[in-house]
Amino acid sequence: MIPRAEFWNNVVADLRMAASFVTILPVASPKPAADGAVARATWALPLAGLLVGLAGAFVYKAAIRFGLTPNLAALLALATTALITGALHEDGLADTADGLGGGRTRERKLEIMRDSRIGTYGVCALILSFGLRWSALAAIADPLLVAFALCAAHTAARAGVPAFMALVPPARPDGLSASAGSPPGRSVAIAFALGALALALASGPGKALVGLILLSLAGLLLARLAVRQIGGQTGDILGAFEQIGEILILLVAASFRMGG
Rank of each mutant, 00 (worst) to 15 (best):
I24Q: 14
L176C: 12
L194E: 04
P173Q: 10
Y121F: 14
A218L: 06
L251V: 14
P3M: 09
P169C: 14
F58L: 14
L225P: 00
I112Q: 00
P162S: 14
E242T: 11
I127S: 11
L110F: 05
R4P: 06
P170Q: 13
D35W: 08
R257L: 13
T23Q: 02
I64H: 02
G260M: 09
Y121V: 09
T234K: 02
S216Y: 15
L144K: 13
L50N: 01
W43P: 03
R106D: 12
V252A: 09
G36P: 00
T42K: 02
L251F: 12
I140G: 01
V168G: 11
L214T: 13
L15R: 02
A79F: 08
A147G: 12
I112S: 07
T96D: 04
A63S: 12
G160Y: 03
P183D: 11
R133T: 07
G131P: 06
G49D: 05
F130T: 05
K207W: 12
L225H: 09
T96F: 07
L212H: 04
T85N: 05
E242R: 04
A44F: 08
S177E: 07
L145H: 11
E246T: 09
P70N: 13
G122H: 06
A94W: 02
S20A: 15
A178K: 00
Q243F: 02
H154S: 08
P169T: 14
A156Q: 06
A254L: 05
S216F: 14
L248Y: 05
A136V: 02
E246D: 15
L212Q: 05
D98W: 03
G245L: 03
P143D: 08
A202G: 09
Y60K: 12
A166Q: 10
Q229S: 14
A226L: 07
G36F: 01
A62N: 10
D98L: 08
V188Q: 03
G101Y: 08
F164L: 15
K207Y: 13
L220H: 13
S29F: 11
A87V: 10
A125C: 04
F58V: 15
R172N: 14
V168I: 15
C124I: 14
G119K: 01
A157H: 06
T234P: 01
P162Q: 09
L128S: 08
A57S: 13
I230L: 02
L54A: 14
